[in-house]
Simulated scan of single mutants.
Amino acid sequence: MISTTILCIEDNPEISELIVEVLEDEGFAVSVVANGADALAALQPPPDLVLCDLDLPGLSGFEILERARGEGILPLTVPFIFITAYAQRSNQLQARGLGCDDFVSKPIDFEMLVPIIRHRLALARVRAPVKPAFALTERESETLTWVARGKSSPAIATILGVTERTVQFHVNNVIQKTGAATRAQAAAQCAILGIIKP
């Protein structure tokens, strides 16, 4: 059985040791990093869940989360939970705006933390992306990426160095494969599935 992996980003060794001890007793595999630069590196390959302090050397927890989500290092399906002594409302609002899934204040109530982790992991499994039942050719993917970026068929034809008729041919193929009603719906569906990256 493969263990659920949790990355703990915490610079206080006493707290990180306690987190590791409690979570390993619960059957999780826990790794610890103590600063922002190491945290970004440790996110690849992505763990199943991230616990992160706010106040860290190098990058703050906010900066780690912003870069991890914004640069596509950490998929949206991986829960990110802040654990911090700085639990004021303004920090919670900022954290949620950056894509944080939960916010736990210190001192840590482990009787509360463990159920929160289990709940977030259960939700993540439900939301895990479904493997698409279709595939796009390289040219279809390229064309649809420009559709997702709001380009018209004539503009896409110019960008790709093909005729407008060829662009329309690829767009129609994608619409048929996805079962979408419009090119915009097809582009949105493929972006959600991770087939294209607008």
Rank of each mutant, 00 (worst) to 15 (best):
I156F: 00
I156W: 00
I156Q: 02
A157G: 12
A157Y: 06
T158Y: 08
T158V: 10
I159V: 11
I159M: 12
I159P: 02
L160P: 01
L160Y: 01
L160A: 00
L160W: 00
L160G: 00
G161R: 06
G161S: 10
G161W: 03
V162F: 05
V162H: 06
V162I: 15
T163S: 15
T163V: 05
T163K: 00
E164A: 12
E164C: 08
E164T: 12
R165G: 06
T166E: 09
V167Y: 03
V167K: 06
V167I: 14
V167A: 10
Q168G: 13
F169R: 15
F169Y: 15
F169Q: 13
F169H: 14
H170E: 05
H170T: 00
H170M: 02
V171G: 07
V171Q: 06
V171I: 15
N172W: 08
N172C: 08
N172D: 14
N173A: 14
V174R: 01
V174I: 14
V174H: 02
I175R: 12
I175Q: 10
K177W: 09
K177S: 13
K177V: 07
T178D: 05
T178S: 06
G179T: 05
G179S: 11
A180C: 09
A180S: 15
A180M: 08
A181H: 13
A181W: 04
R183F: 01
A184H: 13
A184T: 11
A184M: 12
Q185C: 08
Q185P: 10
Q185V: 05
Q185I: 04
Q185N: 13
A186L: 01
A186N: 02
A187G: 11
A187I: 03
A188Y: 05
Q189E: 03
Q189W: 00
Q189H: 02
C190N: 09
C190V: 04
I192P: 00
L193E: 11
L193C: 07
L193H: 04
L193A: 13
L193S: 11
L193W: 06
G194C: 07
G194A: 08
G194M: 03
I195L: 15
I195E: 05
I195Q: 09
I196G: 07
I196K: 04
K197A: 12
K197T: 08
